[in-house]
Design a protein around this nucleic acid. Structure first.
Lengths: 139, 139
DNA sequence: GGTACAACCTCTAGCGACTAGAGGGACAAG
DNA sequence: CTTGTCCCTCTAGTCGCTAGAGGTTGTACC
């Protein structure tokens, strides 16, 4: 009926120290304890921690996760806030993709065509030393 | 002829505390000092710090930058090592793009179609609570 | 009941690459 | 000589964990 922290870790795929960490920052509430002081969890803890893990894997930061937990506990409130959080995060992800894509182009153009030159003629080093050789000023 | 740290910052676009930080981790060598103990830089410091800034903007980590600096100081050595660093970094960037793109799809599918529902029926919360609703197990 | 050993506990420190702030000294212009 | 801006060092904080030290509890087996 009650699990140890190790069992909870196995059930959810979240590492033991991470579970304790989540408790310390208030993402998980304090669990019951055994007589000897060890943490004891129930089924609802598995659900909550799985929720947290999933949100983290989707890239939400801890504050967003906190907010999403509060929202999920209030089924009657409107969906707009949750939507807002996801939309904002989606925009951030798209931003990152755009930046990384520009970066990829820059790096691809940087690579020495001739793999056997000397540093003196190496495009990599030249480009690094002279930003003017880049296509995109933004990076 | 010699610049203060603030002037170096203005020339290169690197913030003053960051310059001191780079010195502390050995990316920049220790500069001359004024009689009163303030840092004094020359033209070659601008070149080196610009090189560093550029490499950082391209996403190279500090260890890579360190290596690239050493390489750039040895024009006679072959280009292969520099090439290796850039290729490795390029692969990392491509990896990140792939992961973020998968994430974007997942998030896009998560967003509530109806913006005026309640949390109880909100896809966002449902998906978070149940990983089975995701297309991609990898995240 | 004893013993072994894995799993648990708390606490502190470290990662990367900065950034912020406190509390004070140096320098240039007027 | 004063004003004000810049500079100095040092410490601590950011984010989300992760690693390790040093000690305690729980459980399985004999």
């Amino acid at each position: 009926m009650l699990f140890s922290i190790g069992e909870l870790a196995r059930e959810t795929g979240v590492k033991v120290p991470t579970i304790r960490f989540y408790e310390s920052i208030g993402l998980l509430s304090e669990p019951l304890r055994s007589e000897g002081g060890q943490r004891r969890y129930g089924a609802e803890d598995i659900a909550r921690l799985s929720f947290i893990r999933h949100a983290r894997q989707l890239g939400f930061d801890v504050d967003d996760v906190r907010e999403l937990i509060v929202l999920s506990a209030n089924p009657d409130r409107p969906c707009t806030e949750a939507d807002e959080i996801v939309h904002r995060h989606l925009r951030e992800v798209e931003d990152k993709i755009a930046k990384l894509t520009a970066l990829r182009e820059e790096l691809a153009r940087m690579v020495c065509g001739t793999r056997h030159g000397r540093i003196g003629e190496c495009r990599v080093i030249q480009v690094l030393a002279d930003h003017g050789q880049c296509h995109d000023d933004a990076h």
